[in-house]
Amino acid sequence: MSLLTPDKILEISIKNGVKKTSYPILTTLILGFQAGAYISLGFLLYIRVTAPLSEGLSGLSAILGASVFPIGLILTLIAGGELLTGNMMVVPLARFAAKITTKQVIQNWFLITVSNFFGAIFVAYFFGHIVGLTETGAYLESTVHIAQHKIGATFLQAFVSGIGCNWLVAAAVWLSYGSNDMIGKIAGIWFPTMAFVAIGFQHVVANMFVIPAAIFAGHFTWLDYVGNFIPVFLGNAVGGALFIGMAYWFAYKKNEYAVIEGTKKPGAFDKKIGL
């Protein structure tokens, strides 16, 4: 298994951040839709696996559900997709390195947010509502319970939970960049993602699925959803951009760049990544 050092992972992350902002808009929207759907399918699998288990098996249920949820991020990173929480880490890194502009960061986040939402809504409506996978018996009860827990959090609780979530999800993306083979990438993605799900942190794209699924079933309102979306989005942004992106930027490469508007200090790092 070929493993890369953290400073090499940083170089790859910056390259990927630049690449993500360079895609044509249609490509970005298609890949964003795919990622939103993949994460939602992972959450749907979580519900289908855990809902039939009794309350006495709640501990086992949490671990079992958390162990299957990562399929969404695995599909996104290996099959291909643009996920907001991952872009909240790599795109700001490209900005810290002065390779893209702040406008490009905002535009990318906006397009990915919209396309992730449509991918998630597609799964929630057609598979959850039309097929009925989240609207019968224990599956409906589980979907509503999960959505209620997320909506019931205060603004501060949802924000801080969002930080914890994307600290782990961005770490999963980071680890996936550190391996050159599929098994290594899957292992790197699996465990941090499983951890955030088992802990119960809030993920903005996962919430795009489960809360609307409950709404389609006749519970809660879209205003409830917006009240959750804002703090979780902000918390995820802080977790990815600051706790992973900026942390490793300052740890490894910050001094090799002059992070001044539009300028960059030439150095060894340029030679390493061929810039």
Rank of each mutant, 00 (worst) to 15 (best):
E256T: 07
V259M: 14
V204Y: 01
G267H: 10
S58T: 14
T76L: 04
K185Q: 14
T101I: 01
F96A: 06
A124I: 07
L53R: 07
H129E: 11
N16P: 00
G274D: 11
K103Y: 10
K254C: 06
I63W: 08
R95M: 10
E261H: 12
V173F: 12
F269H: 08
I112N: 07
V173N: 05
K20C: 05
L73G: 01
Q34E: 10
E11N: 12
G184R: 06
Y23S: 06
A206S: 12
S40T: 05
F250A: 09
A153N: 14
G65M: 05
S142F: 12
E55N: 13
L45S: 14
E11R: 06
L73P: 04
A97D: 11
L168E: 09
L93C: 09
L111K: 11
E55F: 11
S61M: 02
K265I: 05
S22D: 14
R48I: 13
G32H: 06
I121A: 07
G81D: 07
A153G: 11
L111R: 10
K103I: 08
T50S: 13
L84I: 04
V232L: 12
A94Y: 05
K8M: 10
Y46N: 15
F69Q: 03
G240I: 06
V169P: 09
Q202G: 01
F126R: 05
A251W: 02
F33V: 00
G59C: 04
A247V: 14
R48W: 10
R48E: 13
G119F: 07
A37E: 04
I112K: 00
F191D: 01
I163M: 15
L140I: 06
G42C: 05
A158K: 02
V205R: 07
S179K: 07
A94P: 00
G137Q: 03
G274C: 01
E261R: 13
A124V: 11
G188M: 03
V169L: 15
A94M: 00
I183G: 03
P266L: 12
G188F: 03
H145G: 10
S40Q: 00
P24N: 12
A35F: 03
A153F: 13
G17H: 05
A124G: 07
F33W: 13
F191T: 04
G86R: 01
A217E: 08
A62Q: 11
K19I: 04
G245I: 02
I12G: 02
Q104R: 12
V114F: 14
P52S: 07
I63L: 15
M182P: 05
S115C: 11
L93T: 02
S22P: 07
N87T: 08
G32M: 08
V238S: 04
T136S: 15
T102L: 15
V123W: 08
T263C: 09
M194D: 01
W174M: 04
F209G: 10
G72S: 02
L45W: 05
S176Y: 00
I112C: 12
G128Q: 09
I230A: 06
F69E: 00
M208R: 01
I78P: 08
A187S: 13
H149I: 11
T50H: 06
S115H: 09
A171D: 02
L223P: 04
